[in-house]
């Protein structure tokens, strides 16, 4: 833990020593160094996870790649910094990373008191519970007396306390620093219940010895809108990240995908023309080329492609679109129009 202490201390020191203007003009910094430094998780399948060659994949990773494509024209212009839940905000505050795209819940406290801004939502999640199927538990309300394993420094830790208290259920909490230890302790039987965002439960279940022997309970006990985060005080960069996310959602809505973006450039639909930059100058207003969104979609695809590739029904996670479907399909993913 000395290392953690050191990181925190260095982070604190960096806050102090870096010049006041450090947060300004992230775009210029990124263009000068030629890559984006993206803060991700230490390994959460489907969201940000390195494969055996060290290539990062996942929904959160794709967002960083989309921003890199929009800004630099190169989806590989990203370097990844794996961060624990505890380190993530300090890393962003101190300028160590340019974007935090790490299944991070948007809350009032984080948005206002940390000097950070949430640039939208790329996955609507909610906290759930996983238990061994052999326990025969059908509902979270039967969990009285349980030991609950979770991560420290997360909204999860607070939600579970609220839920058990308000339902007058007894529990004991075992909170680990790293997700891998949570999984290992739950797998060893230290806890009856593993709780985190429901998407995370599906992802971590894959790491258990016998994934089939565990069930995710139906209850969702919280709202967890997960999204990218940037430093406060750099509105241009904030807009770029926010609109790259919107770009992918709008692309899905307008039927633009990585496969057809070339022919869509010649589309007559004015909404598609504005999105892909063949009409209007919306990219310039962001400080980018007008083809920013076309580049992003060409490189990583629209939101549906990214979702299906990383977490969708055909992946090991097998998560349905659910609330993450477009508003026009009965979900709540909704992006303001480009105009």
């Amino acid at each position: 833990m000395k290392k953690k202490l050191l990181t925190a201390a260095l982070g604190a020191a960096a806050l102090g020593i870096s010049a006041v203007g450090a947060s300004a003009a992230t775009l210029d910094d990124v263009k000068a160094k030629g890559f984006i430094q993206c803060g991700v998780s230490q390994g959460l399948p489907g969201f940000s996870n390195p494969d055996d060659q060290g290539n990062w994949t996942g929904l959160d990773v794709d967002l960083c790649r989309a921003v890199a494509a929009a800004v630099l024209g190169d989806a590989d212009g990203v370097k990844f910094t794996p961060l624990s839940a505890k380190e993530r905000f300090t890393a962003l505050q101190s300028g160590e990373i340019d974007i935090l795209s790490r299944n991070t819940t948007w809350t009032a406290g984080r948005d206002t008191a940390l000097g950070l801004n949430f640039a939208g939502v790329n996955y609507y999640d909610g906290q759930g519970f996983m238990v061994r199927s052999s326990l025969g538990v059908k509902s979270a309300l039967e969990l009285s007396g349980a030991s609950v394993c979770t991560n420290t420094g997360t909204t999860t830790e607070l939600n579970v306390a609220d839920y058990f208290r308000s339902n007058k259920l007894e529990y004991e909490i075992v909170a680990f620093e790293k997700a891998d230890e949570v999984v290992a302790a739950y797998d060893a039987g230290r806890c009856d219940v593993f709780t985190t965002d429901q998407s995370g439960l599906y992802a971590q279940r894959l790491k258990l010895t016998n994934p089939d022997e565990h069930v995710v309970l139906p209850e969702i006990i919280s709202k967890e809108p997960l999204g990218p985060v940037v430093r406060q005080g750099d509105d241009q960069w904030f807009n770029i990240v926010k609109w790259t996310n919107f770009c992918m959602i709008n692309a899905e809505e307008l039927g633009v995908s990585s496969g057809n973006v070339g022919e869509m450039m010649g589309s007559d639909n004015p909404a598609v023309k504005r999105l892909l930059g063949t009409e209007g100058a919306f990219g310039e207003a962001l400080g980018l080329g007008n083809d920013w969104c076309a580049n992003a979609v060409k490189a990583v695809g629209n939101y549906a492609e990214a979702f299906d590739r990383n977490v969708g029904p055909d992946t090991p996670l097998a998560i349905a679109r659910g609330v993450n479907a477009l508003w026009s399909d009965g979900g709540i993913q909704y992006a303001p129009p480009v105009r």
């Binding site: 833990m1 505050q93 420290t152 909170a175 680990f176």
Partner: peptide
Amino acid sequence: VAIAYPDLVAVGGTVLNQTGQAI
């Protein structure tokens, strides 16, 4: 903190994360 024993650093880390007051 590595094995979830709630000592000063573990609890402090949680507080740090909830409040963001690193210094």
